[in-house]
């Protein structure tokens, strides 16, 4: 069931996930489309998440946005009143961040390792960090050890911060501790995106990669074909998996396996490495007297790709 509408206010609104923003020219969503989008969300009972560009919006846009309860996802250059802040530059990450902020950082695995100090400084100031890895598609089995090492480094920092009594969530490592079922992105099932061209997309990634790949518009409504294939129960590799923190990105699925309900080897291995690191971190926290109210017991796994269990032809 749809619960959220994401509205990209401008073609240059920054990415908050795996995809890249491929459009460089500013194009603000039409005011009428913005208002229609808000009306659509009100009638469908959807929570709206606005993704802001890195410039100030005209007054009439601000007025329209403020006419409805919503979440502001903003680039760090426009951090006023942001509910979620998208960080763009490692140098800037530790200045002027409010303690209760949720931040998103998009980075390759190498960038994360190279900027570990800044990452730790950032984590010590905020309540939640979402890390979006930008190079999932080029991950290979040769990278398993280096990713394990990266997660272990971040986990050490998370541990050190939590040990001081501060509350901190990092999606890759702590989400799994709180989950007892899949918490995937669910694009096209729980959320849908309205792009600046007035058309709906399963998520911003589909808009930026092929603007023809729409699933309806404000005039004719949503038309999501094969929506069942976006659901967990129609994903044979995922439906029995317990790497609950995995985003199960349907855009990456389509890009790498050609079918949106099928995750790539990369996505599965990365999610399982995170799963195992969560397990290590939880054990370490428990061993050292930090109580985490986890409802789901995490047991480490040797098999990093559930495909090898599900493969019907092996």
């Amino acid at each position: 069931m749809l619960t959220h509408l994401i509205i990209l206010l401008d073609d240059t609104s920054p990415s908050y996930c795996h995809y890249d923003v491929t459009l460089k020219e500013r194009r603000l969503i039409g005011l009428d489309d913005l208002k229609s989008g808000i009306l659509f969300a009100m009638k469908e009972n959807l929570n709206i998440q606005f993704v802001y560009p890195s410039y100030e919006l005209p007054e009439e846009y601000v007025e329209a946005i403020e006419s409805i309860d919503h979440t502001k996802i903003k680039p760090d250059s426009q951090s006023d009143e942001a509910d979620v802040l998208i960080l763009s530059d490692w140098k800037e990450v530790i200045t002027d961040i409010a303690y209760n902020s949720t931040c998103i950082i998009r980075a390759s695995r190498t960038e994360l390792l190279d900027n570990r100090k800044q990452l730790k400084a950032l984590m010590s100031k905020i309540s939640r960090l979402n890390i979006a890895i930008t190079d999932v598609d080029i991950f290979s089995d040769n990278d398993i050890d280096s990713y394990k090492n990266l997660l272990s480094c971040i986990a050490d920092d998370v541990y050190a911060i939590i040990k001081t009594g501060k509350s901190l969530q990092v999606n890759l490592l702590t989400d799994l501790m709180m989950l007892d079922e899949m918490n995937n992105c669910n694009a096209g099932v729980n959320n849908i995106t309205l792009a600046p061209n007035g058309r709906f997309y399963l998520c911003p990634a589909f808009y930026y990669n092929n603007s023809q790949d729409e699933v309806g518009d404000l005039r004719t409504g949503l038309k999501i074909k094969n929506q069942q294939l976006l659901r967990l129960d129609h994903a044979p590799i995922c439906r029995n998996c317990d790497a609950f923190q995995c985003k199960r990105c349907i855009w990456l699925n389509g890009k790498l396996t050609l079918d949106r309900n099928t995750p790539s080897h990369q996505q599965c291995v990365i999610a399982h490495l995170e799963r195992n690191s969560s397990c290590d971190l939880l054990e370490k926290l428990n061993r050292n007297g930090v109580k985490i109210n986890n409802t789901h017991k995490i047991i480490k796994k040797q098999e990093l790709d559930p495909f090898n269990i599900v493969n019907r032809w092996k």
């Binding site: 129609h234 044979p236 590799i237 790498l256 396996t257 080897h265 495909f307 599900v310 019907r312 032809w313």
Partner: peptide, 25 residues
């Protein structure tokens, strides 16, 4: 639906949907 070629080999990712396909799904 190209899964590879004689020079670069088979991209196993593009076979995954086939190898996990069942009747009911």
């Amino acid at each position: 639906w190209i899964i590879g070629n004689v020079r670069d080999g088979i991209d196993q990712n593009k076979l995954r949907p086939f190898l996990t396909l069942d009747r009911t799904t």
